[in-house]
Design a protein around this nucleic acid. Structure first.
Length: 256
DNA sequence: ATGCCGTGGAAACCACGA
């Protein structure tokens, strides 16, 4: 079973790229982030015609996450990350699909840092850690997948020294990410490729993609029950080079 | 050193992204 995560940066604006990638890559389960579409403007007919069921948590203008599945029922578990009834941003969607609990996340960016946006990000990471701990205790196959907006280590960004103060790489975000993983999760791509430089995002600016000035911020965290089934994984880097494309590339893993 | 690009919604500019 192939599971993918892809920050589409506007599902309607980049729909043709998404559909082309779905056809070429043929993932069984897909987590999407940054739909940038209100709930009633999700392109469900196009997604359905491509062969995918879908559940989505949309929002006007910003954010928005979705889970797609090919030929499988998607049983929604929830669309609220517990811990803050004031949080109205559509950044979380949890579903049971193919015998796996899939949590699709779009973690807040946090910039400019320091400031209220970083504060919100840190609180969101605390809430995610709390939910992740509960999911681990269930001792079932779980994948937390999505745009974490977190660069785990210096190996994961083209110029670490430039990002020391950035909300994606500052020490408190790195420590929060490491603390989350240390609950017992497996960072899939890093576990498959312990020493390689692998990026999932390249800025639109400054020819970042052609310079390979990227960062690894889209991740798959697997519970022990699922990590043992991890066979392979990678980044569909070429998709980032397509016309009218997202600034992220799709990331995928193959599960036995 | 810098949103230089790109999206969506509102309004012909704005907020936001990483």
């Amino acid at each position: 079973m192939k599971i993918a995560t892809y920050n589409v940066n506007g599902i309607n604006g980049h729909l043709s790229v998404l559909l082309k990638w779905l056809e070429e890559s043929a993932p069984d389960i897909v987590c999407l982030q940054e739909l940038k579409a209100p709930q009633d403007n999700f392109p469900h007919e196009a997604i359905s015609s491509a062969g995918y069921n879908a559940v989505w948590n949309g929002q006007k203008q910003w954010n928005g996450v979705a889970i797609l599945a090919k030929g499988m029922e998607i049983q929604e578990v929830g669309r609220i990350l517990p811990g803050d009834p004031e949080d109205m941003q559509s950044r979380y969607l949890e579903a049971l699909v193919g015998g796996i609990v899939v949590a699709c996340i779009y973690l807040p960016n946090g910039n400019p840092a320091p400031g209220p946006k970083l504060d919100y990000k840190m609180r969101w990471m605390e809430r995610l850690s709390a939910r992740a701990k509960v999911l681990l205790e269930h001792k079932v196959p779980v994948a937390i997948a999505g745009d974490f907006n977190a660069i785990p280590t210096e190996l994961d960004v083209y110029k670490p020294e430039k990002y020391k103060e950035d909300a994606l790489f500052c020490i408190e975000v790195r420590e929060a990410f490491r603390s989350l993983v240390n609950q017992g999760w497996t960072d899939s791509i890093r576990s498959l490729y312990p020493d390689e430089t692998i990026y999932t995002f390249w800025d639109y600016f400054r020819s970042a993609y052609s310079r390979n000035a990227g960062m690894r911020i889209d991740h798959f965290l697997l519970s022990p029950e699922l990590a043992g089934r991890l066979q392979s994984g990678g980044v569909d880097k070429d998709v980032r080079g397509w016309e009218k494309t997202s600034d992220h590339a799709p990331v995928w893993i193959q599960i036995a």
